[in-house]
Design a protein around this nucleic acid. Structure first.
Lengths: 258, 258
DNA sequence: CGGACTGTTGATCAAGGTCAACCTCTGTGG
DNA sequence: CCACAGAGGTTGACCTTGATCAACAGTCCG
């Protein structure tokens, strides 16, 4: 775990994302800054937090990707979520004395570990930041429900279509501007472990999606060729993630959402 | 939605559950009481919160069962979670202006709707209550991860075994004393929609579990006959849910968990 | 040049889905 | 008191999706 050159606060993907939800001038940048001090680096496959450890820190990704997964004794593995730049992992896990999942980098990453106390301080200091953190958490929870629905009730094509659609749209949130094409540092084995399929079937299904003209891919760059058809296949909601309706952010505070 | 005779605060399943986590004398009962005022009743199949509605309330169950689910246009449905007495549904959903799942009673229930403001007031007034709510939320999140893992990487026997194991253990938390046998107001169709299987296969799998001597069932009463074998089949963790190690509750406050 | 890792393709197999008949229980109305 | 309808559950026959096994190709890297 090396310390590297810090990313400037203004350029953090997290800030980019929060601005979609709340007008920049309402965001308490200084307080947010306290959370992202002590930036760290990790390389591909490095484990940040391991299953069973009593870790009491939440991970905040600035650059690169990580995954959170659970594994069985017999080798089976379920990837619970992909963690992208600007993602803040489930802070409720603070409170347990035993982590139930592993977080590992799947590309070189830059991140911060946030301890419960500093998060509490931050949200107490700045109500708008508290509201933002709450919003992040609600988006995360909604994403988990989507993922569960995909695992339980969708077939291979829908699941993989949904995964690509979702990752693309999450990357849009922290990109300069939306793009249908991104490099995803994700092997087919990871897609399999995230969607509950076998590696072989993932390969075939990707080939099918491509042949149908829904996506294109070279190396690890995936391009959505036909947004509408892919969204329909994936039963995805065009409105996701929920941005704030124009004007609402101006008046919204923790006291007013009731 | 009728109003019925209120349950006495002291007897609320939620309070029972919280006492497992925190010594009774540290719990601010009065503040908790503010959350459960205005108790309501609903009958089987009544919808409390419906998908797509802009509802800004969290549901707190006092008696009876509910489910949270998502449904597709084509009739497919995924049950995301069973809500039991003492359960408090995902309060992070406050913040979205569009609910993404439906909550419906599957037995006659008694419940409260908690609005964001009163929850905020409560956790601000009483730090120990805030900590408790955080703990509830972390247990809930961990349960969702278990469910996801089951859907993605377990076979029919494991999934259904896990479901029965989990429901039983959650009921233990709010019961007078643990029991291997409970009446679950759950049809096989619901088990199917929760586990991502077909109704027919649920029937066969339940028969198999019974024939193997793992469970017994009459009407809707399920009995775990061999805890160890069922737990092993379900890859369940005997330590779940995480109670507080003896003594720790005395010293634990929000300020000290870091 | 050789090995490890990732992805592709074909052949075969099994878990679980689908369809359909039937059974049991319960409530309802004649 | 019986007839009937409807819902939930069980069982059998057959089919499909996706798993498994195996061989092989491309790429990266020592």
């Amino acid at each position: 775990m090396r310390h590297g050159p810090e990313l400037a606060l203004e350029q953090l993907p997290l800030l980019r994302k929060l601005r979609l939800f709340m007008p920049a001038r309402l965001l308490d940048i200084a307080t947010l800054g306290a959370l992202v001090s002590r930036q760290r680096r990790a390389d591909t496959d490095e484990v940040l937090i391991s299953e069973g450890s009593p870790s009491r820190a939440a991970v905040l990704i600035h650059e690169g990707w990580a995954i959170r997964y659970r594994s069985f004794d017999d080798g089976r593995r379920q990837i619970l979520e992909f963690m992208l730049p600007g993602d803040f992992c489930d802070p409720s896990s603070f409170i347990s004395y035993q982590t139930d999942s592993t977080i590992a980098a799947i590309s070189p990453i830059q991140y911060s570990l946030v301890n419960p106390q500093s998060l509490l301080d931050a949200v107490t200091t700045s109500p708008t930041l508290g509201l933002s953190m709450w919003w992040l958490e609600s988006q995360r929870a909604s994403m988990m429900r989507n993922h569960m629905t995909a695992l339980g009730r969708m077939n291979a094509r829908e699941r993989i279509g949904y995964l690509i659609w979702q990752l693309t749209h999450r990357l849009d949130l922290v990109a300069e501007r939306p793009s249908p094409s991104y490099r995803l540092p994700v092997s087919q084995e990871m897609i399999a472990d995230a969607t509950g399929l076998s590696v072989v079937h993932v390969s075939r299904t990707l080939a099918w999606l491509q042949q149908e003209g829904l996506i294109d891919r070279h190396n690890h760059t995936y391009t959505i060729l036909c947004t509408d058809r892919l969204r329909e296949l994936a039963h995805a909601n065009a409105e996701w993630p929920q941005r704030l309706p124009a004007g609402l952010g101006e008046t919204m505070t923790l006291a007013k959402i009731s």
